[in-house]
Amino acid sequence: MFFDLIVVGASWGGLDALTVLMRGLPDDFAVPIVVVQHRSQDAESLLAELLQQWTGRTVVETEDKQPIEQGHIYIAPANYHLLIEDDYFSLTTEAPVRYSRPSIDVMFGSAAHAFGERLIGVVLTGANEDGSRGLQCVYEDGGYCLVQDPATAEVATMPAAALTRVPHATKRALPEIAGHLVDVARNGPPATYVRATA
């Protein structure tokens, strides 16, 4: 594997987009995936259960100090920021960042710092600009950046903002994202991808 971790950010329209992503990933694709999906702070912790229906991998809502394990999909809990240490998670209740807690930018930033060029960042549909700064961190720390083609997003604002900040990110239609992730994780980024130079 060329990559050790995949981080995914989604907002408005994210549940449908994540469902497509989950259904498209083969069960034997074991790279851990971390998902921040914006939702209301009172939201019951149903997201993990909803996504679990579509995948044979284990989907869990993340707890503080939980280790990062192969084959798992980790969901950020509502009302906490999710941060990534070297091989485990930590949570914080610090102030929302650009109105979001969990914040995609915060999670992506900590993942980029911990995993560097072994990280893939993915920005999906959403009606705000969270994720674009985080994706920039992923890019600058040498990771691979993938953005849902805004034309295929329920709301284009978030992926469009990510592409503006990270013009070298690969753009793919939603149905192609799962297959592309598997391909890149196993075979490395496409030859056309321009990696950040240190």
């Binding site: 707890e63 503080d64 100090k65 485990y88 949570l91």
Partner: peptide
């Protein structure tokens, strides 16, 4: 403990 904390990892 807080609802997202756990003794599981201690």
């Amino acid at each position: 403990l807080g609802s997202k904390e756990s003794l599981k990892f201690s």
